[in-house]
């Protein structure tokens, strides 16, 4: 199939950037979206032009690296997938495809389609962990009884790969789905229980300091999440935060 790509090109974080049009000929329908971009980059390199910079790593939907917004939707026009899992058969001959980086003040563009998602790391550093004695006396996790439904909910929350599609999809660039998944995962398990009060306060305050917007409960994040993280986690985060605000000793 023949396609017209309109891709955001930006040389550096300070560059203004803009959309550049690239006609693509003879694209195979069984290619993945990233393979299609590889072909484009091959052509660009052959012509002596700068290839399009985009993040990618595992190419099997696990790492969450392949951040881009395709025709206005993070990871493109399909649900519960990352960009690497998107195939060209989802498009038709003659289509124009707009490819843009994840847009948020907290995710500054580094180059072309690559953005800096360090804000997520800093939120995790603020409280997204459990403090465990690793001196050789660590208690085996399987010896601690856990309610089955809690284990299941914690596991569902833990499938979050931190890709940032929730932020990219949200009209407010809110990071609530990501933070709520991490808070839920830890708050639901006994190992995470000890630090739950300080954790939720610190993570939410770090999220705010990073400049993410507030949650309008539009549900766009959950709809675009490649791991289908549920909005129930955001409600749990709100509960955890309210509870912490009453019991915190700070």
């Amino acid at each position: 199939m023949n396609l017209t790509l309109k891709i955001w090109r930006q040389k550096s974080p300070d560059d203004k950037g803009g959309m550049v049009t690239y006609p693509m000929k003879d694209v195979e329908s069984h290619m993945s979206f990233l393979e299609m971009l590889d072909v484009l980059n091959n052509d660009l390199i052959t012509k002596g032009e700068e290839p399009v910079a985009f993040d990618h790593d595992c190419r099997e939907g696990i790492c969450g690296t392949c951040s881009m917004v395709i025709n206005g939707r993070p990871h493109g026009p399909d649900s519960a997938i990352t960009t690497c899992q998107l195939h060209m058969r989802k498009f038709n001959d003659g289509d124009t495809i707009h490819i843009e980086p994840f847009r948020a003040k907290s995710f500054p563009v580094l180059k072309d389609l690559t953005v800096d998602r360090g804000a997520f790391e800093r939120i995790m550093q603020a409280g997204g962990f459990i403090s465990v004695n690793t001196s050789g006396n660590t208690i085996d996790a399987n010896t601690i009884p856990i309610r089955k439904d809690h284990a299941d909910m914690a596991f569902d929350a833990a499938t979050c790969i931190g890709c940032g599609a929730c932020v990219a999809a949200c009209k407010n660039s809110s990071a609530m789905l990501f933070v709520s998944a991490k808070v839920s995962q830890l708050a639901l398990l006994p190992q995470g229980h000890t630090e739950r009060t300080e954790r939720v306060l610190k993570m939410v305050h770090q999220m705010d300091a990073e400049g993410f917007g507030t949650c309008s409960n539009t549900g766009a994040c959950a709809a675009e999440c490649p791991k289908e993280i549920s909005l129930d986690n955001i409600a749990r985060l709100n509960r955890e935060y309210l509870r912490a605000s009453f019991v915190s000793g700070e």
Binding site: M19, H98, E100, G213, S216, N217, T218, G219
Partner: peptide, 30 residues
């Protein structure tokens, strides 16, 4: 105030808005 601050959280807007595909318009226009 929150709406205005939320708009500032995305200084560069998308060229193509895909909001229609993932959320109800009332929720995006409160």
């Amino acid at each position: 105030i929150m709406t205005m601050n939320n708009r500032k959280a995305r200084p560069v807007k998308y060229q193509v808005d895909g909001g229609w595909a993932n959320s109800h318009w009332t929720s995006r226009n409160m």
